[in-house]
Write a protein that binds this DNA or RNA. Structure first.
Lengths: 196, 196
DNA sequence: CAGCTGACAGATATTGAAATCTGTCAGCTG
DNA sequence: CAGCTGACAGATTTCAATATCTGTCAGCTG
């Protein structure tokens, strides 16, 4: 498709793979398609990624990391912890909702990839819970939150809000009442964190 | 299969449909199979259920109602509301986990049916949230809980625990850490309900 | 005549042969 | 000689022919 003289790098292959996935979807995107779009033989792709699964997982990881970075900025902020927590949860929900609603096909594609990816998703969730733990610890330190074990509490906050970030609930994010439900859950969770 | 002299009733058709679904799964269970297992022609089945979709939804409703009944007993209890809430949530989670883990194929079958059913699932969820609202109102009345609007709060409690009852999370119910996660979320939610 | 049957039209699912893909590797090329 | 190619074996997917199913209804049966 686009025969270039440039060197074939892992980076260029990942870019091309993302493009092919966007165009053909997860079921029909093949390694041969990726090679074709780079103007090389598929054997060359296998030089950089041992298998198709490894290539796909690398694409998934990239995609997940983009979300992580944005939220890391909020978690590392220095404002009042309760506001930071609310902002973080709202940002996560908004990002997910935007992706799912804005380009449903691409979102569906990444949902399939995430289902295939072995470690990647678990690690991503671990990072997000780690960010929540930072916020909660900050709250405990300033005396606005209570928690015997911030890591466990962070996981609880993450799971209590699963409905608003786990892709398996994506269909429900279109419902008109979803924003109210989100606010009610956040209200309940924040109350549960407050120092007695 | 079992030609009986008994009258053909909606009840008997539902029973046979459940059996056929259990045996063949949701993809291969046909109206013809149901009729065959009752020893009648498929035209007779259509006399009681206008379409295959209506028949399947009726089966789904039956299945959902079995869960509702068990929990209604707990919700209507007269013990301390916090304990009642904990028991109710634990019973819901235990029931789901037992069904999903005990007979995964049957559970997968009902998951497909629930996905097809239009109103049925929404109504079922509405009933469960209604039961939670009863418990929360009891807690507000006795002064152990605080809630400006028990109906909204009940929905928030239900959604905060989605991870532990929504079938889309069924795979995670096998994880060893799930029980701890459940307890952490319940702890957080109960704290959020307590009167300040 | 109330309830059931079975043939039918259009929609959907199954099947198996042909096409394509994955992953490997010996050898070509710059 | 480092990096790429393209043919290959076995696995997977596609596609079109074939079979089955859904929903209807005129007519049979007890």
């Amino acid at each position: 498709m686009a025969p270039t003289t440039e060197t074939l790098t892992a980076e260029r292959i990942l870019e091309a793979t993302e493009e092919v996935l966007r165009r053909y979807g997860p079921a029909k995107a093949t390694v041969v398609d990726v090679a074709r779009s780079l103007g090389v033989s598929h054997g060359s792709v296998y030089r950089h990624f041992r298998t198709k699964a490894v290539l796909r997982e690398a694409v998934t990881r990239r995609w997940l990391d983009r979300t992580t970075e944005v939220l890391a900025g909020i978690a590392a902020g220095d404002g009042d912890p309760e506001t930071r927590l609310r902002d973080w949860l709202a940002a996560l929900f908004a990002a997910k909702r935007r992706k799912a609603g804005g380009d449903p096909e691409l979102f569906a594609t990444y949902r399939v990839l995430a289902g295939e990816a072995g470690e990647a998703v678990g690690e991503h969730i671990g990072e997000l819970i780690g960010q929540l733990a930072v916020i909660i610890r900050a709250g405990v330190d300033t005396g606005v939150f209570t928690s015997a074990d911030p890591a466990t509490t962070a996981a609880a906050v993450f799971h209590a809000t699963d409905r608003f970030h786990d892709p398996c609930h994506a269909r429900e994010w279109e419902l008109p009442e979803i924003q109210g439900e989100f606010e009610a859950v956040v209200h309940l969770v924040v109350r549960g964190l407050r120092a007695a």
